[in-house]
Simulated assay, not measured.
Amino acid sequence: MTTSAFPPPCVPLDGLDAALQSQGFALIAAADVRRWLPADVAELDALHAGWDHLPADAFLKDGGHYRRRRHSCFVVDGQSVQQAPHRAHWQPLEYNALHGGMQRMFEPMQPELVALPVWSRLLTRVGEAVCALRGTQPWFVEAHPFRIDTTDGIGRPTPEGAHRDGVDLVAVFMLGRHRVKGGESRVFEADGPSGQRFTLTEPWSLLLLDDARVIHETTPIQPLVNGELGWRDTLVLTYRSGGFQGE
């Protein structure tokens, strides 16, 4: 596996909406994310602390033990954030060939994290970005805290391969990397040949994806030192109009 890391082509905050509209994705540097939310480092560290308590994913069909996660749902309508009753995560096979069609019931996010003021600010701010892209309306949000580790010697952030999620917007927050190599993000036109590749390394940098226009994947991670555990933490949010998938 190559250790080369292509830097992410970040855009300034005032270019976020234009980048999403013109190329189908936008990358925001961590310092700009903190201004955008707004949030300070201590608030974001308090939220990220919950990633040390993620249960193992019991639904991996490739037999792996490299993914830990939770899952909760919310409805975001302007500045209003309401947590929805806990439900299974479901995707159709056309969007997830590996795990589609399964009712996957994960443990919910910890109540103390959901209660943090920064959590609601984060959900509403991303909601503003998707409103600028699709029009003002309520959004049905699924939140996925992920830790991919090297327990098996290799960890797969996207075991389903390059994919779309069947939503309107996908937000991928890079929370942190610990003693790993790999994990290159790849974004491609859904209906064309163009694409970009880059490695997210900066804690709380952000990748926004117009799910109708692009497909995405992340390459596997490996430990920097053989035999030493490493991991990659992300928060993935999906925003969908009209309802949650599977309703």
Rank of each mutant, 00 (worst) to 15 (best):
residue 205 S to R: 04
residue 231 W to N: 10
residue 220 P to M: 08
residue 33 V to M: 05
residue 129 A to N: 02
residue 196 Q to K: 08
residue 219 T to M: 11
residue 161 G to P: 07
residue 219 T to D: 08
residue 147 R to Q: 15
residue 65 H to Q: 12
residue 52 D to F: 08
residue 81 V to W: 09
residue 44 L to W: 03
residue 215 I to F: 03
residue 149 D to C: 08
residue 134 R to N: 11
residue 226 N to P: 12
residue 227 G to C: 11
residue 25 F to V: 07
residue 80 S to D: 14
residue 189 E to K: 07
residue 161 G to S: 13
residue 135 G to M: 12
residue 153 G to E: 01
residue 77 D to N: 15
residue 185 S to G: 02
residue 149 D to T: 03
residue 194 S to R: 13
residue 113 L to E: 00
residue 27 L to T: 05
residue 109 M to G: 02
residue 241 S to R: 15
residue 152 D to H: 08
residue 147 R to P: 01
residue 120 S to H: 12
residue 218 T to Q: 15
residue 63 G to A: 10
residue 216 H to E: 09
residue 206 L to M: 15
residue 153 G to F: 04
residue 191 D to V: 02
residue 187 V to N: 03
residue 100 G to Q: 06
residue 196 Q to W: 09
residue 243 G to T: 04
residue 179 R to A: 14
residue 246 G to H: 11
residue 29 A to D: 15
residue 29 A to C: 13
residue 52 D to W: 09
residue 158 T to K: 11
residue 179 R to S: 13
residue 195 G to T: 05
residue 37 L to T: 00
residue 240 R to F: 04
residue 50 G to N: 06
residue 187 V to E: 07
residue 169 L to S: 03
residue 12 P to L: 09
residue 31 A to M: 10
residue 43 E to S: 12
residue 123 L to V: 02
residue 175 L to H: 01
residue 85 P to S: 10
residue 173 F to C: 06
residue 233 D to E: 09
residue 70 R to E: 02
